[in-house]
């Protein structure tokens, strides 16, 4: 699954650690999601969508 997490984070000038704190996960998890090595669960995807005030499909796209 592709995602725009890194772009959205960079637009807001947040660090991975800040995003991780906001999402309630570890920095390693944010890194793995950004690199496409780990697909988040639906609750975590919803949390990210709420945080960025976007729809889930605007952040995560099926490849």
């Amino acid at each position: 699954m592709k995602n725009r997490l890194k772009v959205l984070r960079a637009e807001r000038d947040w660090t991975q650690a800040q995003l991780a704190q906001a999402l309630g996960v570890s920095r390693q998890t944010v890194n793995a999601i950004e690199k496409g090595k780990f697909d988040p669960s639906l609750p975590l995807a919803f949390k990210a969508a709420r945080l960025f005030k976007l729809k889930i499909e605007e952040i995560f796209q099926d490849e």
Binding site: W14, A20, Q21, A22, L23, G24, K47, L51
Partner: peptide, 14 residues
């Protein structure tokens, strides 16, 4: 660079 109020709530929780 700082998280907005709403997101700060998340941050505090996390």
């Amino acid at each position: 660079k700082t998280l907005p109020k709403d997101e700060n709530k998340h941050t505090q929780k996390n």
